[in-house]
Amino acid sequence: MAKIIFTLAINELKILLREKTFLLLLAIFMAMTFFSVYIGWSTRTTIFAIYRESLSILREAGMSKFPPDPVLNVPALAVFNNMIVYIFLIGALLAIVIGHRSFIRERKSGVLPLIFSRPVGRKEYIGGKMAGIMLALAFVLAITFAVSALSSLFIPGLRMSFAEIEKLFFFYGVSFLYLFVFSLLGLLFSIFMRAESMALLVPIIIWVALSFVLPELTTGQNPVALLNPVNIAQSPQAQGQFFVWARNLLAPFSISQHFTVLSLHLLGIEKQTEASGGLSVLSVNFQHLILLMISIFIFVAANIFALSKYSITRDKIV
């Protein structure tokens, strides 16, 4: 069984690496990873310069007491804060496409009857597909981690300690879990939807709902405000009975928020756990990690169930 799963997983990765759509999204993702480090560094140094300039103007105006520098004591890892949003946006779309292509490709080419004519069980097959998706995501995130770590070497004054590299590693680990949820969503709809385009569109709509609607209901923030890590970390939570009720009811399902909260803590943007190590940050926020894992288990089970009901002979993709 393990051998079949392994063969299917390697095959999945090989095919993905030949697909233009995957490579296009991967290229956008890599470019944005590199760019995010540049943006983080550029913003940080400019704010510092603006602060100094502001001080001199305020001194001229006769002021003697000044607020502290806003970027003072900002951890080195905060330079990667835009990656939270890129994983949240591009990463999730890439993940949906990976999951979607994984099964649709075989439905369209008509190889499924051939595959199932061999001694391959449905559980082995879906296991192989999921393992292949995991390999593909691990491959993407390993490159992203390397690009982040290497590009930080070129930033003057930014030297990451071992503990910070460890936290960056955990951040990509959490990103892996988050992206895996969306890959499984893409895979699920590619199994049971008749139309190829619908199988891609429905997960995208669900992603929009999970990423924008649930957080809006639980935090009271407008959708676009949720794309700025500073807003997410530092804006006070909306008060009032409605938001308390919405938080209690919907927060467990808000996958994007679990990812965002964990990321903000791991990258040191949330001050409470800034000085803690990666493992201790995860243990403090274990409930978010657990809820992400539960989502994965639910989607894995849903995929296994969907494939068990899938009829090879009646399938007619449009």
Partner: peptide
């Protein structure tokens, strides 16, 4: 729609502090 406006927003010096 999402990334470029987000970059502009996060680079805005005035947006660095709530």
């Amino acid at each position: 729609v999402l990334i470029i406006p987000q970059i502009g927003d996060t680079m805005d010096p005035d947006n660095q502090v709530p």
